[in-house]
Write a protein that binds this DNA or RNA. Structure first.
Lengths: 155, 155
DNA sequence: CCGCATCCCATGAGATACTG
DNA sequence: CAGTATCTCATGGGATGCGG
């Protein structure tokens, strides 16, 4: 296999190339899972709630039950858990006010605010291509069914 | 609660604000899960392998076993599954060559290439703040332990 | 009001063995 | 080579009830 050319890029494929370069860099580092940012840092996007919570906190500090009401269907258990993990990563800070009954406020840290920019781009991409992807899925599923029934009728 | 001001932004808080605005827009739509792009489209970031596969395909078309070798620890089962789901979403296309034995090539679609830009930004963020987050985690865990032992010794 | 503990189920994902 | 099939186990996450 010929070596990939790292320079000589005249196309508009820059993000494509930086992604590819990044990937190869990890490969050459032996892909140590402990050092792979994708695996170690991007977990919170994966889980069901973190992104929504971060976005709701983008509007300003929120109290526990405010977030409960803002984020649909989240349970207290999962909200607690997710907030803890965001706090652990330093994206969210927790402030307890000794009122009666006590109230707790969550807000984005500097780091948490900094992730909103790339995150929002991705969410923007998702919104932009939402319809396209939905159609792609429907078409794919229809084909799968067609092939299956086609195989059946051929029997 | 006073209405948030959507204009009148002199700070550098633009992404923060667009995220907040987007979030409120979803809220006002009743947060129909079927219409929430975060929940419906961003799943593939969540799963363990999609991001890595997309990044490896950023370097050009790859065959099944090439990806197996490129992505560490992925099993054939999970690679098949993940590729199917990426294909279903229209991010990846599959090309079968009737050689002997048959070979199959995967490549990014136009849509797949388009997601690489926002995705790469996020990955870049992850790389940039990897060390910070790692430290935040260690400190958080240390505090948790301190508090626990502190509580114990106080008894 | 905020959060923890427990129980329980659905899904994710590895290991292994088998096919066109 | 490029998958499928099956088994199995770990994790995610909902429901509920208690406690400060």
């Amino acid at each position: 296999m010929p070596k990939l050319q790292e320079s000589n890029l005249t196309e508009t494929a820059v993000p494509l190339d930086t992604a590819a370069t990044r990937f190869r860099a990890w490969q050459e580092m032996g892909f140590d899972a402990n050092r792979c940012p994708v695996r170690n840092v991007l977990d919170f996007i994966g889980d069901k709630w973190s992104t929504l919570i971060l976005m709701s906190l983008a509007g300003g500090p929120r109290r526990f039950n405010e977030i409960i009401r803002a984020v649909p269907d989240i349970s207290k258990r999962m909200l607690t858990q997710t907030l803890r993990s965001l706090e652990r990563d330093g994206l969210v800070t927790r402030h307890v006010f000794p009122t009666k009954p006590p109230s707790v406020e969550y807000r984005l840290s500097q780091l948490g605010r900094s992730v909103l920019e790339p995150l929002d781009r991705l969410v923007g991409w998702a919104e932009t291509h939402f319809a396209t992807i939905t159609r792609a899925r429907q078409q794919f599923d229809a084909n799968v069914i067609d092939e299956a029934t086609g195989a059946l009728t051929q029997k």
